[in-house]
Design a protein around this nucleic acid. Sequence first.
DNA 1: CGATGATGTTACTACAAGTAGGTTACCGAT
DNA 2: ATCGGTAACCTACTTGTAGTAACATCATCG
Lengths: 224, 224
Amino acid sequence: MVDLIADSRRLNPVTATGNEQAPVRKRMPRAERERQMLTVAEEIFAARGFVATSMDEIAERVGVSKPMLYEYFGSKEGLLIGTIRQARAELRRSTEEAVLGAIDIEDALRKGLVAFFEFITSHRQSWSLLRNEGALMANSAGSEVEQTRQQQTNLMTALMQGFAPTVDEKSREAAAEILVGACERLATWCEHRDEVTPVQAAEYIMRACWYGMLAEFRGDAQNA
Amino acid sequence: MVDLIADSRRLNPVTATGNEQAPVRKRMPRAERERQMLTVAEEIFAARGFVATSMDEIAERVGVSKPMLYEYFGSKEGLLIGTIRQARAELRRSTEEAVLGAIDIEDALRKGLVAFFEFITSHRQSWSLLRNEGALMANSAGSEVEQTRQQQTNLMTALMQGFAPTVDEKSREAAAEILVGACERLATWCEHRDEVTPVQAAEYIMRACWYGMLAEFRGDAQNA
DNA sequence: CGATGATGTTACTACAAGTAGGTTACCGAT
DNA sequence: ATCGGTAACCTACTTGTAGTAACATCATCG
């Protein structure tokens, strides 16, 4: 209809008339474009929420047309999953890296916790995605994301295994879930309270859960 | 304009031609219709998820036209909030009732936990709503629901207060958040494992968190 | 140069949220 | 008994957004 817009856009690749701010839509390799899309999508999804976000808006902010998003991610949910996967990968990398330098299991847990809370305070956008990831995955691609999430607890489970090998499998799994749940909720709580430092948050978790588990598991180990 | 359709509809209230299955749409008082809508909506939201559910489908299953839903709940999100509010009210009632008969604080916590896990195993639909409630509330009516959710932790906070009055406010709040988070995650975990009984789940929580907090808070109280 | 495939676009369809304005059944008062 | 008046309800529409088909353009390598 309004061909003025289309025409002006068509001028873009060529050097603009001079006074225009050069919204230069350049072609770029797939990988780079993909990262750019994920960056923009994460920002908007985190700000407005999944439902209130439109693909048109993301496309516009990226400086590309909507079918490109579908070319790269298949669907709106696919795009969301992309952002979630990226965010979770970064979180995972941060925590695993922090754990590597630990001297014993308690130290590993504490360092992992601190890294986790540091991540969620410095990457609020990513966290607000991860926090809600389970919500929209009722039927479709839920399993894939659920699997990724599972990896989060696997680290915990591994720690548990090293710490309390004699305790039965199910109790260890439950303990890992409890720890993760506690962390997630406390992280959300911290969002409204900037005065709580990551170290402090980690300490809350340690005091509330770890020392209790320690006593309990040690007791179990002796009883068994 | 197309009065043919209107005419055929007009036949509905009157007894149908005979072989039809009597889609008799009866009028009913507001309160009753509202409850009916919430029941259907909860079922469909829980089954398909918020995004994949259409208002048309809910309206059809209720046996009413779409504008009715908007008359009663204002928007799709309003309808969701209605179902969440109802589910949370029921959960709250269950747990508070269970706590009343307790003889001390530890007993109160244990009874509350058992009631919680019993609720989420017997009301899976309600739980799958509550579990994800935070996801869609990025900007709009989030505060209202968040407030309701806050009440969930208030009971915990109150218990903490009674149990460890000398511990500073913030630690107590954090402890309450941790407990709630642990419960939520463990509840989701239990969904895939029918062999875990509510009593068992409650025991997991008690062992992981409570005894630890007990020792820790008692220690703090002595230090302070 | 010119073919080929990757990157990108316009212009559409289908469907769902939300609304304007009119209709019908119930209920209480005359 | 019947006749307003109102609460419950409907049809038919607009608007907006996910998703798609078919076409266009840039880059690169023979």
